[in-house]
Amino acid sequence: MSRQIGEVILDLKQVSLSFGGVKALTDISFDVREHEIRAIIGPNGAGKSSMLNVINGVYRPQLGEIILRGQHFSKMNPYKAAKAGISRTFQNIALFKGMNVIDNLMTGRNLKIRSNLIQQAFWWGAARREELAHRAKVEEVIDFLEIQHIRKTPVGRLPYGLQKRVDLGRALAMEPSILLLDEPMAGMNVEEKQDMCRFILDVNDQFGTTIVLIEHDMAVVMDISDRVVVLDYGKKIGDGEPDAVRANPDVISAYLGASH
């Protein structure tokens, strides 16, 4: 691999998040380096999705801060996150089911559109040129994810595995520098998982995108990620390279469930 893992670009410091009396995350710190694939694992309810939601500002942690490329965000929100180049996919696909694949991917370009509503309504001049440029970008994503054959199919009619791929496509259409993937392989069969792994590795390799992913399939996590964070009951119990994490006794008892 020619890819060079760079400096820390995303640093989470002592993040704590609670909903009323429920502590979702307690005092969690970890960092993400540029161009790396960083996995978050843990049993159900460990706080993995909450962690992602904190990173892209859906949840605001009561304590702690997020440092993105040296910039401190104590109050991240989804808009700021997106502006800063963070895009994500969802565990329960959140696409527009009635719209076709192209239109769904075009929504990923929304933030980059400069022309105003009226120009767009008449689809004239700058608005037209701009949309064509965005469409070209979307076509690149379609080509990259090999979904040419479903370009004009309404997303609701697609099988689950392909919907997941479209979900990834929309995140990619934003040309993110950091991509958050929430269980990209949940509910897929072996072949679909292999395809998805290949796409994730390709994204990382070709565009140098930093990837933070939550995944349950241990084989996948150990195979593709550079470093792994392990959460349990909202606390961090392990952090390091896959082999080190696999050998960590806390992790074994909490998650992998193997006998000691």
Partner: peptide, 9 residues
Amino acid sequence: AMREKDLGI
């Protein structure tokens, strides 16, 4: 003489 569809065009 030849056509090929590439990037949707």
